[in-house]
């Protein structure tokens, strides 16, 4: 039965397996925290299916209030996911044999993890549709399923503050930020963003702290990077 799967698709499935294992608890956590913020199970599942980008989903849930701040959510999703523009630009020329429908659907399945694995694969061979869809087909299913299960489990859990679960966001974002660490430039980014965001939050209130922190952090990186780098 497994022999019927093309070899390249099988390679993609093998490559993504550890990512699926790691995504299960993160999906459960996302669902539980979103439910605690008052999102319905349907809204939680729909966001995982259609947005399908963990960092921006956690951010959206953290910024979620009533009434829903649509512009803030869209702006922060755009900023957080802008890195995928560069990933696509880098990976695009290494993909071969895709039809237009395969392209338009396949690009939706781009994630940090799939990108990193496909770039590694591209060092040995072209990224074909069989490899790409083998690599990317399981994660959406796992992400939506664990989000919904987490949403149900979370609504039974009660007050998330009691368990320190309200701090899980902050801890997760610190962990994600550490993954982007690149030395001095990152230190300038973090310091600029943290100070500007906290100041604006205290003086002007949400949602302006996100834009202020983002601009200050990006400006800090620009100033801290060497000016004469022509790499």
């Amino acid at each position: 039965m497994i022999g019927a799967i093309p070899r390249e698709a099988r390679q993609g499935l093998v490559d993504i397996a550890p990512v699926i294992v790691a995504a299960v608890p993160i999906g459960l956590l996302y669902g539980a925290l979103a439910a605690a913020k008052g999102l319905s199970v349907l809204e939680i599942g729909l966001m995982s299916l259609l947005v399908f980008a963990g960092g921006s989903q956690f951010t959206a849930v953290e910024l979620w209030t009533q009434p829903v701040p649509v512009a803030t959510l869209v702006f922060s999703a755009m900023l957080i996911n802008a890195r995928m523009i560069l990933m696509g630009a880098s990976l695009g020329p290494k993909m071969a044999g895709f039809s237009w429908p395969q392209r338009l659907f396949g690009y939706h399945l781009l994630t940090d993890e799939a990108w990193a694995l496909a770039e590694r694969h591209a060092g040995r061979a072209k990224v074909t549709p069989a490899y790409w869809f083998g690599l990317t087909c399981l994660l959406p299913a796992a992400w939506v399923a664990t989000s919904v299960i987490g949403a149900y489990a979370g609504s039974l859990m009660g007050d998330p503050r009691q368990l320190g679960a309200d701090f899980a966001f902050t801890a997760m974002f610190i962990g994600l930020t550490a993954g982007f660490w690149k030395g001095r430039v990152s230190a300038a980014t973090i310091a600029g963003s943290a100070v500007a965001s906290a100041l604006v939050y205290v003086l002007a209130g949400p949602p302006w702290h996100v834009a202020a922190g983002a601009v200050a952090g990006i400006g800090g990186a620009y100033l801290a990077a060497p000016a004469d780098d022509r790499a």
Binding site: T59, I80, F173, L176, I190, G192, G213
Partner: peptide, 8 residues
């Protein structure tokens, strides 16, 4: 720097 700046 965009992702860490927004996360922070």
């Amino acid at each position: 720097a965009i992702p860490p700046a927004v996360l922070v």
